[in-house]
């Protein structure tokens, strides 16, 4: 692994806002050594670096190990049902564009049961940051293959492997219209923090696909540490170039693959000064 050990971020984190201020007093249910711990740390560092007020953050999740995240942060959180976090977050952002809306989830939650919402959240390109903690397995239900699991991985459910090609989240996000697409690695918290700050600041739908080893059900994923390349990709605003780098990557490159200035869907949100008068006008249409 080629760790960029001296990123500017490491210095910036010791500023007035402490990352720990974003933590709640609930201890994670994750297994010791789980990659998600580092993602939680990177997220609090990113929020602190951006000095985002805790109460201005809406963090939405679905179901799964990673989706437990909202309870671990001292922000406005919503731990919803399996696969629907992006839809719930879209409703929140529509009503409350003033909030910084983040969504967290896993590969099963986002790419399988939530696949349709993933596509349409990309397409809507609302100003939402989607943090996917991809461990290529269903951990909470104790080790079943997810859409990103390699075809040959054997489990109780798939003794011969899945026999099905893997889902390409970043390729699909690009095709569906997301305007920020990055890959991160939980073993590179500084690189991850940087990606998160970029994603949150990006105006539009940001996907950060984070490889995060499941040490319990996929212990072989510990080896990712050796293969991951820290922030070696440079962003392109050209979808054709981005597609090339997404499809030519072996899955171990991290960084921003695509960042473009695309139309952001922002439903109207102009407060009504005189609702009684406007209602009276609307009701007038009904008069015979």
């Amino acid at each position: 692994m080629t760790h960029a050990s001296q990123t500017p971020l490491e210095k910036i984190t010791v500023k007035t806002v402490k990352p720990t201020e974003y933590l709640s007093n609930v201890h994670p249910v994750w297994c010791p050594g789980c990659g998600h711990f580092f993602i939680l740390r990177a997220l609090t560092k990113a929020l602190a670096w951006l000095k985002l007020p805790k109460e201005q953050i809406g963090l939405v999740s679905g179901i799964g190990c990673s989706s437990r995240l909202p309870a671990y942060l001292n922000v406005y959180g919503f731990h919803g049902v399996h696969g629907r976090a992006l839809a719930l977050a879209s409703g929140l952002k529509a009503n409350r564009p003033d909030l910084t809306v983040l969504v967290a989830g896993g590969d099963g939650d986002g790419y399988s049961i939530g696949g349709n919402h993933f596509i349409h959240a990309c397409r809507r390109n609302m100003d939402i940051t989607y943090i996917v903690m991809d461990n290529e397995v269903y951990g909470m239900t104790k080790g079943q293959p997810s859409p990103t699991t390699p075809a040959e991985w054997q489990s109780k459910l798939t003794p011969q492997g899945t026999g099905v090609a893997r889902f390409n989240p970043m390729g699909i996000a690009l095709a569906a219209g997301a305007s920020f697409i990055a890959r991160g690695f939980s073993g590179d918290p500084n690189g991850l923090t940087k990606l998160m700050t970029e994603a949150i600041q990006h105006k539009g739908f940001s996907l950060i696909e984070i490889k995060s080893p499941c040490v319990t059900f996929r212990p072989e994923e510990k080896a990712w540490q050796k293969s991951m390349r820290s922030l070696n990709v440079s962003p392109s605003s050209n979808p054709a170039e981005a597609a090339k780098s997404i499809y030519s990557s072996d899955g171990f490159d991290t960084g921003i693959f695509y960042q473009a200035d695309l139309p952001v869907y922002e439903p109207t949100n102009t407060p009504c000064e005189n609702p009684a008068d406007v209602l009276a006008e609307i009701e007038k249409e009904l008069n015979v």
Partner: peptide, 16 residues
């Protein structure tokens, strides 16, 4: 995109 989304959007909007 579907009714599953619609209901969750309502919940998200209302949470807001």
């Amino acid at each position: 995109e579907d009714e599953l989304a619609a209901m969750n959007m309502v919940i998200g909007g209302s949470f807001g």
